[in-house]
Design a protein around this nucleic acid. Sequence first.
DNA 1: CCAGGAAAGAAGACATGTCAACTACCGGGG
DNA 2: CCCCGGTAGTTGACATGTCTTCTTTCCTGG
Lengths: 153, 153
Amino acid sequence: MCHMATRWLSDDEREAWKHLNLMQLQLNALLGRELADDGLSYQDYLVLAGLSDAPDNRVRLTELGCQLGWEKSRVSHHVSRMEQRGLVAKVKCPTDRRGSFVVLTDEGRRAIAAAAPGHVDTVRRHFIDLLTPEQISTLDDIARTVLDHLPKR
Amino acid sequence: MCHMATRWLSDDEREAWKHLNLMQLQLNALLGRELADDGLSYQDYLVLAGLSDAPDNRVRLTELGCQLGWEKSRVSHHVSRMEQRGLVAKVKCPTDRRGSFVVLTDEGRRAIAAAAPGHVDTVRRHFIDLLTPEQISTLDDIARTVLDHLPKR
DNA sequence: CCAGGAAAGAAGACATGTCAACTACCGGGG
DNA sequence: CCCCGGTAGTTGACATGTCTTCTTTCCTGG
């Protein structure tokens, strides 16, 4: 049995980690509340945004999950719920009969068009516009570094 | 009806925001999986850690929610579940009969003592140790700035 | 070709989080 | 003193997320 003294976090490290988590939580909550006025959850928005950016407004379920960092079953459940509400549709993939595309419906297109300006404005006012370009760039470096190092999974 | 052209995010801004969210999601998932071996969820860990740090290992529910950035009903539900499992106990506050303290039980103490080294090690290996002190400091600045600016709620 | 492992999703059971009441209690201004 | 708006926490309904298992289909080494 091998022991190694744990290297606890320094005060600075602990503070930064705590504040980062707190920030994320509060921002997500804020964005969620803000979108509720448009009848969307933040998660709905992310899915719709992912589809908007994609060629033909359609993405494979797995690909979507990969972009958002969601488990495949989370994607499946959430897309099903959105399908019930008419925001997206599922279309079988012709070249791989196991898979499907998620496609933006007209209703989904309307929904995100209505929600996007307010959403982006909120992200700006409570996040982006509070920071310097250097800070934003550092943030991107940090996130990339951490993500690159992550176990594949 | 007043319109203002939406200032969309630049590519850099969008990327940073996306990567940040992705990082947070993946890190939380990783930490959660890692703690599962010890029979705790990440949320359980956060509560136990909050209690460990507190004088007498006890904290008012509201105070705990405030530290973690949780809604009061989330705190209530989660603490109740942890109470069922014997990790914490609730004690009525003598000076304010509306409120209660959450207290660390012996079992809770054992649980966090067992989990903490592995948890901290994971935070180090997948986050802290990948970054320079300057980056960590910038991160703290950013989070503070954003948090300070947030609507009270 | 063809067996068997890997990938795409779906589905169900269950854990977790949110929202909107609701109860009980506090504390201050008539 | 008492009314009343605010605060602490609980509760139940419901939305969301996770884990595991299952089916179907794909693909590759023999």
